[in-house]
């Protein structure tokens, strides 16, 4: 059976909200939980010690815990934070940048890669496997056809590298040094008043025709539609996908997890609609189309 994972929280939530979220998540049928701040170094509601406290609770609940690293590394302070994560030995690390690859391999720390690591071919996977890669995420802009080829090529090489697919949530699409939330409030980034806290699921950016395009989330930009590959799970299982990633939201997440859990167990039909929180769904990337597209009626039970 495929595993379910909870990706790192991409938004900025208060410390209490984060602790509450994971206290609940400890009871959910997810196998793997990614912890840590991956977007902005100014988000310091939780210190590494706090994350490790959450990690130990989740571990005791039988979850595999992975520590995620920041995607855009800009300063010496960012590197110091990264070095701390890459010098512990208790948990696997999710490298989201080549800086993390360097520090993990230097410390002989096994690692996995997140969806922002550019893995587009099996030559890249092969060389990372030699460095200690234990699993990898498909970049969000790639689809099932490419994934199928990559899995087949790995098999032909006799390489066992479990693949993970970002399957539910707003897609992380870009990272900048500019903070778009601070820009919205006409505040300098260095004095942003932590406005992201007021937007636990981002700021909606629409076209002037009210089309939902993106979600501004501090220095990162996410999709305006919610990626939803629940109906694709049977196909993923046949293909050999190891893990399906769900991206945390502050409302309705338990229900999302339960639906995906039922689906992987074959308990609900693949046509069952899942519409919990207001946002248009999309799945275009999976079909090699524009990411925002919604392809319907192609999934097979």
């Amino acid at each position: 059976m495929m595993k379910l994972s909870l990706g790192p929280i991409l938004w900025f939530w208060s410390k209490q909200s984060v602790f509450d979220f994971y206290a609940n998540a400890a009871e959910w049928p997810v196998d793997t939980v990614y912890l840590g701040e991956t977007v902005c170094s100014r988000r310091r509601e939780l210190k590494l010690a706090d994350w490790l406290e959450i990690a130990s609770v989740l571990k005791e609940s039988g979850k595999q815990v992975v520590l995620s690293t920041q995607t855009l590394i800009e300063s010496e302070a960012d590197l110091r934070a990264l070095r701390k994560i890459c010098s512990q030995q208790d948990y696997l690390v999710e490298a989201n940048d080549q800086s993390a690859l360097q520090l993990a391999t230097q410390n002989n720390l096994p690692f996995v890669t997140g969806p922002s690591m550019n893995i587009y071919n099996s030559a890249t996977l092969k060389l990372l496997a030699k460095q200690g890669l234990k699993g990898w995420s498909l970049p969000v802009e790639l689809g099932q056809e490419t994934l199928q080829q990559l899995i087949a090529e790995l098999k032909a090489e006799g390489l066992d590298l479990p693949a993970e697919v970002f399957a539910w949530g707003f897609l992380p699409l870009a990272w900048s040094s500019r903070c778009f939330t601070a820009r919205h409030y006409n505040l300098p980034k260095d004095n942003c008043e932590f406005r992201c806290l007021q937007h636990p699921d981002g700021l909606e950016l629409r076209s002037r025709e009210s089309q939902e395009l993106f979600r501004l989330n501090g220095t990162s930009t996410l999709s305006g539609s919610r990626y939803d590959l629940m109906r694709e799970m049977p196909g993923m299982e046949r293909m050999g996908v190891a893990t399906v990633r769900l991206s945390p939201e502050h409302q309705g997440m338990e229900e999302v997890v339960r639906r995906f859990d039922q689906m992987r167990r074959g308990e609900i039909p693949s046509t069952d609609p899942l519409q919990l929180v207001e946002a248009p769904p999309c799945n275009g990337y999976w079909y090699g189309k524009p990411g925002m597209d919604l392809v319907t009626g192609q999934a097979q039970a």
Binding site: L72, S116, E141, L173, A174, S176, T221, G284, Y285, P290
Partner: peptide, 21 residues
């Protein structure tokens, strides 16, 4: 380019082509 290059998928989200692909 305002986004960190090599990790911007905005273009393929709206169209089917990005700098990476």
């Amino acid at each position: 380019c305002i986004m960190a290059e090599g990790r911007c998928y905005l273009s393929s989200y709206l169209t089917d082509e990005s700098p990476n692909t």
